[in-house]
Amino acid sequence: MRNKRVIYIDVIRDVAMLAVVFVHTCTNMIVSGQGSRLWAPANILETVSEVAVPLFYMISGVTILNSSRTKDLKYLFKHRLVRIGVPFVIWTIISAFFFQIVGDGFKLDLILKKIAMIYNQPVITAYWFLYPLLGFYLLSPAIKTFVDGANKSTINYILILWYITNIVLSGMVNSLPPEMGTYFNAYGNGLMFLSNMGGYFILGYKLSNIAKEKINLKLHVSIFSIGMLVAIINMYIVARYSLQQMPLSGFPTSILLPILASSLFLILKKFEGKYPVKVQVVVEWLAPLTYGIYLIHGIVIALAQSIVNPMNYIAVFGISIVVCIISVWIMSKIPLVNKYFM
């Protein structure tokens, strides 16, 4: 894609980043705050925010699969993997020290063990996002070769296959009691490389190549609004009345997620070229900071929760996002830190 920043991609990046931080600030309330007046809003807002991770993978697919440099293995290993991998490793080490010290005191052997296990599991749960993303980066030259040579029908076929196997059937496994869900659980050795998140990678590429003039704004606003309402009602009823074991209790939400993410993506793309100048300035300023914010937000949230009541997720989010933005912005002004930490 061209060097000039694409505003709607930056808007999606900023919105998704804010949503991810918010979800992680309200976890305590959702898990143990039932009965509080803030519990229902937390569930509603978390459901709305679930589109964040799919959107992140979708814009990764947009930027990588539309780039002419993606087939260049030298560029991949000298630039792309370094840019995402080095900060990830550095903040993994920092996080291992931080959470061990604040949790159980300084125990170097446990810290080193956590760091040594980085290939096996993330040091903190929030970092799970980077594992499939690094895999897509490694596979990106092959995926780029595929999408460049494939026609629309083939790409649609791959996405339909992904939706059935990784979204619908996977949703049934997670939404049915174990004794029933096992019938829809794929045999491990039969799984294809196109994982749950992998489909979003290609989906973003496909949607990015739809001309904004062909996007029906009213249609996608309707789809997103109705779909989100169904997802919110579904998850609220399931959580409110403890129906987690009811057959297919969370199924509607799981199968709606790709549809909701796609509609929101197209809605935001439709406004490309129409965003107010002041909004563009803020969006373009914030977008380069999002990866750094993602990397440090777990530590910042933990610090914020030590200052205010962890159940007050609104206050925790407010403090966390402000501290994250300011901290990353300051670090981005230091060349060496910006190069290796962000």
Rank of each mutant, 00 (worst) to 15 (best):
V168F: 08
I167N: 00
T290M: 02
K270M: 07
I158R: 10
D14N: 15
F341Y: 14
K144A: 12
F193R: 15
N185P: 02
G188Y: 11
I325Y: 04
I7T: 13
L336T: 06
I44Y: 08
S32Y: 14
S68T: 11
I101M: 08
A19T: 11
I232T: 03
T165C: 10
S140I: 12
R240H: 10
M192K: 14
N166V: 08
K269R: 14
G250S: 06
N309M: 02
E213P: 06
L257T: 13
S306A: 04
S175R: 00
F184P: 00
L295T: 09
P247A: 13
L45Q: 09
A116N: 05
L81E: 01
W91Y: 15
L264D: 03
Y313R: 07
R69W: 11
I226L: 03
S327G: 08
A150H: 10
T27P: 02
T165H: 06
I164H: 11
K274V: 06
K114Y: 06
I143V: 15
L81I: 14
F98S: 07
F136R: 01
M331C: 02
P178I: 09
S153Y: 09
L139E: 02
V48N: 08
V277M: 13
Y200M: 02
I293F: 12
V283S: 01
K152P: 00
I232V: 12
V322D: 08
K107P: 02
I101S: 04
L81K: 09
Y236S: 01
F201P: 00
P276F: 11
A142R: 09
T27G: 02
V238H: 00
K144C: 05
S36C: 07
M228D: 00
T125P: 05
I301Y: 10
T25Q: 02
I202Y: 12
V6E: 08
S67T: 14
I223F: 14
S170M: 11
L295A: 05
S170L: 13
G85W: 10
K206E: 11
P276N: 07
M17Q: 04
L286A: 10
Y291L: 14
I334V: 13
R13A: 04
L243E: 01
N28E: 07
I299W: 02
R2C: 12
F77S: 08
T92M: 15
P252T: 12
L159D: 03
D148L: 05
Y236C: 01
L266C: 05
Y294C: 06
N189L: 06
P87D: 11
Q280M: 07
I232P: 04
Y291G: 02
E284P: 01
I44S: 07
